[in-house]
Every structure is written in C-alpha cells, then in structure tokens.
Amino acid sequence: MSGLVIALRKDLLLQWRGRLQIVAVFAFGAAALLLFSFAVGPDSLALRQHAAGFLWLALLLASTLSLAESFEHELEDRAIEGLLLLPAGPRALYYGKAIANWTQLALLGVALVPVMVVLYDAGTTRLLPLLGIILLGTAGLSAPGTLYAAMTAQARARQALLPLLLFPLVVPVLLAAVKATSLVILGDPMGQLRPWTTLLGLFCVVHVSLCGLLFGRVVEDG
C-alpha cells in the first residue's frame, strides 16, 4: 500500500510540474469542441442534442495526448528499470500512474463542461450526477489507456499506435458516458440513467483489475 502512495505522489508531482502541458491539452479539447460545432452547423437544437457526444469525443481525443505523454519521464535514462527494482512492484507503479492519469482526465472533463455549456447551450443543474459520470468515464479511459501508454511509449509510431489500440476497447465507455451525459443534460423522464452508470462501473472494475494484473508482464524485461 505504501508503494502505491509513493508511486502516486511521484506521478502527481510529475503532473504538477508539467501543468503547462495540461493547459495545452485543455486548449486542444476546447478547440475540438468548437470544430465539432462547425462540422454540424449553427443549428442550436441539433447542437444541444449532441452536446454530450461532442464532449466525450473531445475528451477521448485529448486523452490520447495526455496518455501518450504519461510515460515520457519513465523513458528518460531508462528510469523504468530503476523503478521496477523498488520493492513497490509493478502493480503499485501501474495504479499510481493510472490514478494520476485519471485525475488529469477528470480535471480536463470538468474544465470542458463550461465550454460545452456555452457553445451548445447544454447546461444542467444536475451537477453531481454529471461529475459522477465524468469520474466513471475518465476512469474507464485511464485504466486501459495507462497500460497501452506503457506499451506504446517506446514504439516509433506511438502517436498513432495508442489511439489505434485504445479506441476500439473504450467503445463501451464512449457509448455509456455519452448516453448518460445526454440523459443528465436533456432530461431523463424514464429513469434510464442507472443502467448506463452501472455499465461504466462494470467496465472500470473489469479493466482496472485486468490491466493491473497484466501490467507487470508488459514492463518486465524480455
């Protein structure tokens, strides 16, 4: 457990030091939201209908940037080998990194909500459910994303490889998060929110445990 805390501290510290980059990723996400509206046209009704989809697409695209960079420091001077020698073990390494990525993505999601509200007139007073969905959805992105970021970190074409591997896997997250967010924004007369959040939760549980289990094999030598 203490290994996890140490790993988490290291990763959060790294993220704090690189906060300028996080701002850049936010700018990317906001720009994406703007571009989506150009793609659909100025029909405010249609924009409001699809606001949830745009938010999560922007978040997904932005996640490829932030996830791809997350193992950058471990690559310098082959630091990963040193880290693996510590008694904390690869699992602590994984969870520390995954939680740090999750935090960054969740902050990104929360920051993009006002942009969505303004551009698409997609406001809601149900902020707590919205926060919950963002937390669940970004956890679902971060769990497999961290694993694949470790795999592709050293690959020559890592910018293209990470989304290629990750996107098909997180289709359930996209579907469920968009559906749930849509229900929160547009209204949920038939109470359909529960199944979607349950699906998100299930996805997170499966992938957090599976990826944690397999991470050790991914970073071990040879």
Binding site: P144, L147, Y148, M151, L165, P168, L169, V171, P172, L175, A176, L199, L202, F203, V206, H207, L210, C211, L214, R217, V218, E220
Partner: peptide, 21 residues
C-alpha cells in the same frame, strides 16, 4: 508478451462491447 496481453484485454472487452451496443 504485448500481443498476448493486448489479445487478452480485447477478448475480455468483447462481452462488454456487445451489451453496450
């Protein structure tokens, strides 16, 4: 090892994808 890990995760994902769709 990477291919095997990616394959395992993809396979575990299939039922979830099916139900969500």
């Amino acid at each position: 090892v990477w291919s095997a890990v990616a394959c395992v995760i993809a396979f575990a994902d299939v039922p979830i994808v099916y139900f969500s769709v």
